[in-house]
Design a protein around this nucleic acid. Structure first.
Lengths: 165, 165
DNA sequence: ACTATGGTGTAGCAATGGCTACATTGTGCA
DNA sequence: TGCACAATGTAGCCATTGCTACACCATAGT
């Protein structure tokens, strides 16, 4: 609606400041922006979550978490991992001394635990809903970072209700 | 395991080249790296998916898609949108002439359609599983980019089976 | 017909997250 | 005891995705 008329162009008629033409999709504007913002924040946090979880795993399995192992598990070059670990330190999630291993702070450990729990819940739900195990594991790696607490609680209730898990 | 002994350090014992110590978590290494790689690709594609979907929406609603509207809907500054639109053009998903609107190519339109369909499916599934509508909508914005075809098919089957949708 | 206004575009900065290449450190083994 | 070699770290490059500031265009109204 509100298509042009004159000119051959478009981008026209001095679209009201909001470009919010009709009225139907009007309301969705700010809300939608919020959603995208939220998704963006989640995206930027997801890297840290993956790292803390992986570091916790490595410490549990090997007694230590080393840059090279982290890099290999994530499929990136070691300087990339190194840089992100520096960020973890900056954000107070991990500590590390040169050539020594990497360790999680309390905050890092807490993050790792909640991430692991969330991961498991997401995988279980995907499987409960019929996704093949392999796909569920792979997809969860991306999905888990975007599941809100409210949705997570719903997952839990759903799984319990079905006698799953 | 394979914890150090000598020294006070760590990072030790000339860990076998794979650091793949025991044998249990060994097998997960390359697989896990694959998963993270996949998640990374998805992450980089997600921006383009959001844009094509939004452009299609705007064209459907307003007859045109303008940079400013896109920026507002996404909650970013207009130069940010402008830059991403340049990328869309580079990748053959959209066309645009200065000061004219933005249009999708066939590839862009195809992407928009599949993204929209996926989005709906994800929202429906989240709701079917008990997530509050608001959370479902918001979470789907992030989740949709990480759902594989296999999982998507499972979602569809699940929803049909329940008489949903 | 002109001008005010707002949409568009461009430039340049910062942070993130990849990479390769090179320097450094530490440990294991000869 | 010392050296070779792998693990770490550092430097510097590129691309992406934000931003602000500033320049430019096009339309609406006077």
């Amino acid at each position: 609606m509100r298509r042009v008329a004159s000119g051959g162009g478009l981008v026209t008629k001095k679209r009201s400041k909001s470009s919010a033409s009709a009225s139907t999709e009007l309301a969705t504007e700010p809300v939608q922006a919020d959603r995208f913002s939220k998704a963006r924040s989640a995206r930027s946090a997801s890297m840290l979550e993956d790292y803390t979880e992986l570091i916790a795993d490595l410490i549990a399995a090997n007694g230590e978490a080393r840059t090279t192992d982290i890099a290999r598990r994530l499929g990136v070059a070691h300087p990339t991992a190194s840089k992100t670990i520096a960020r973890l330190k900056r954000e107070g999630l991990a500590t590390a001394r040169p050539y020594r291993g990497i360790f999680l702070t309390e905050a890092g450990l807490a993050m790792a635990n909640s991430v692991r729990q969330r991961h498991r819940l997401v995988v279980d739900l995907l499987i409960a809903v019929g996704a093949p195990r392999e796909a569920a594991e792979a997809d969860a790696e991306g999905i888990e970072h975007y599941v809100s607490d409210a949705t997570l609680r719903a997952f839990e209730a759903f799984l319990h209700g079905r006698g799953q898990r």
